[in-house]
Structure formats: structure tokens, C-alpha cells
Simulated scan of single mutants.
Amino acid sequence: MGCFYSLKGFASSFFERSSLGKRIKNLIVEEEKKKEGENERLLTDLCECYLLLHNEFKSINKTMTKVCVSCLLKEAANKDESEKKQKEVEMALFALSTVRYRGKGKIVHLNEIKEIILYHQEHRHLTQIAYQSDWQFLIKRFVFDESLEGVIVNELHFVREASKGLEKLMKHEDWKKKQKEAKKEKGIGKEPEEEHMMMKWLFVIGRYLTMCKLWNEESVLLVYSIVRLLRAARDINMNMSECCVNILYGTVMNRTMKIEGILKE
């Protein structure tokens, strides 16, 4: 249920007030108090359930955030490349990508997030959705800590990685065909996987371009990728097209790029 809500963009408004929500919170508190390592798998599963079922647009209280984020980052830092372990890492990062912080202050767990991204850039061991989720978790913090800009742009090369991710998805042979078939069939669950991954990238890219003030040659490549996606999607996916247009508009309003530069691309 949590995966479905998060991947499809729904909000489970009543989870916090439900008996299920209260029960999961109590179980997390109970498990966290036990000796470390006694049942880490159960605690991890509970934290994932809680974050994925929680309404992404509402903040979680500090205690629950601290417990869940610490637990899931530990899971996500596992470098075992077996299929089973990578699925667990993917799920942990996907759940973390839904966390919403409020308030100012130094970003917590920055070193852990950086390490996961840098290790993947060297070894390319994460799945696409896991890698996107890690970026999403980091860039959501950016709105409260502008000092992250240099880390995101110069150390972790977000622009290069996001451009590469979008271009790879656009080159996927069947994505346009799947889009047209989904458009004919309609209904929840008919959208191709590539669409969800592209929309996740666009969400993260939009956050970055509408807030970041640093601009370099790599940034132009990112704008070019969005323009290409807009051209490819405009006849088959209105939501994706609108998202691309809004990102370009936000980029101009942020004054990161002059309108002449976007028109040139």
C-alpha cells in the first residue's frame, strides 16, 4: 500500500489518525528501545511502512523522524550487491525520499547521504529508483540549507547525473509506445514504469533548478534534456509536458538562466 501511494502520487490522509498508524508508531518505539541488533529487520520494515503510508505533505514529529531516518540510512548504506539486499536498499531509500523536514538548521546525516551517492557513482550498483530516491532525500533538505548548493553542484555533480538519468530513460525503446497504450487503456496502474521514473527525476530537477543559484555549462545540458523530454511527451503525456514547462518557467523566475538561454535550447 505504501509503495502504491508513494509511486502513484497519492496521499493517505487518514493514516496518522488511524489505529494502524498509532499501532505502527508504538511498535517502532518499542523496537527502538530494545537492544541494538535484536530485530533490526522488523524495525526497518516498520519504519518503511510508517514513512510510505504517512502523508508526504505533512511533517513527522522529530522523534519518529530521527528513529526512522537513522534506521533506514543504515540499511541504505549496505554495499552488498546481491539482488535481495539491493531490493532492501531500494525500499529503504524510496521510503526516505518521502520524508519532509521543517525548520532551519544544519542538515543531519549529510555524510551518509553523500557516501551513498558517491559510492554509486563509482560502482553503479543501485537501481534507478534507489539512486533517484537518494537525490530526492538530499535535495528536499536544500530548501532549508542553502549551504548545500556547493555540495550538490560541485561535489556530487547533480546536473550531470540527472541529465544522464533522463537521457537514458528517453532512449528506452518502448517508452513512447507504452505511453500511447496506457493513454488508450487509462486507469490506475496502466502507466509504464519509465513514466514514474521520469516524473521522479523531474520532481528533483524542479526543486534544484527553481532554488539553486549556481550555474555552469552542465546546467545547460539539463535544460536541454528537459526540452527534449517536453518535445517527446507533449502529444502523449500532458502531466509530464506541464511539469517540464513549469520547471523551465521556474528556472527563468529564479533568474538562474535568462530566457534567451532557454529559448536557444
Rank of each mutant, 00 (worst) to 15 (best):
H109Q: 14
H109T: 06
H109A: 13
L110G: 08
L110K: 05
L110R: 05
L110E: 14
L110C: 11
N111L: 15
N111S: 12
I113A: 05
I113G: 07
I113D: 04
I113R: 04
K114R: 10
K114N: 07
E115C: 04
E115I: 05
E115A: 08
I117D: 01
L118T: 11
L118D: 09
L118H: 06
Y119T: 13
Y119Q: 05
Y119W: 04
Y119R: 04
H120K: 00
Q121D: 14
Q121L: 11
Q121Y: 04
E122Y: 05
R124F: 08
R124Y: 11
H125K: 02
H125R: 03
H125Y: 12
H125A: 04
L126K: 02
T127G: 12
Q128D: 11
Q128R: 10
Q128Y: 05
Q128I: 05
Q128L: 06
Q128P: 07
I129L: 08
I129E: 15
A130F: 07
A130V: 08
Y131M: 09
Y131T: 04
Q132T: 14
Q132I: 15
Q132K: 07
Q132N: 15
S133M: 07
D134Y: 01
D134N: 09
D134W: 00
D134E: 06
W135C: 06
W135P: 00
Q136F: 12
Q136G: 11
Q136C: 12
Q136P: 02
F137P: 06
F137Y: 14
F137M: 06
F137V: 02
L138N: 07
L138F: 13
I139L: 15
I139M: 07
I139A: 04
K140P: 14
K140Y: 12
K140V: 13
K140H: 14
R141Y: 11
R141D: 13
F142Q: 11
F142M: 08
F142N: 08
F142Y: 15
V143M: 04
V143H: 03
V143G: 05
V143F: 00
F144A: 14
F144I: 09
F144P: 02
D145M: 04
D145Q: 05
D145N: 10
E146V: 06
S147Y: 13
S147M: 08
S147K: 12
L148G: 00
E149L: 02
E149C: 08
G150H: 11
G150I: 10
G150S: 14
G150V: 14
V151H: 00
V151W: 00
V151C: 11
I152C: 03
I152N: 00
I152R: 01
I152V: 10
V153E: 10
V153A: 06
N154W: 06
N154K: 09
N154P: 02
N154M: 13
N154I: 10
N154T: 10
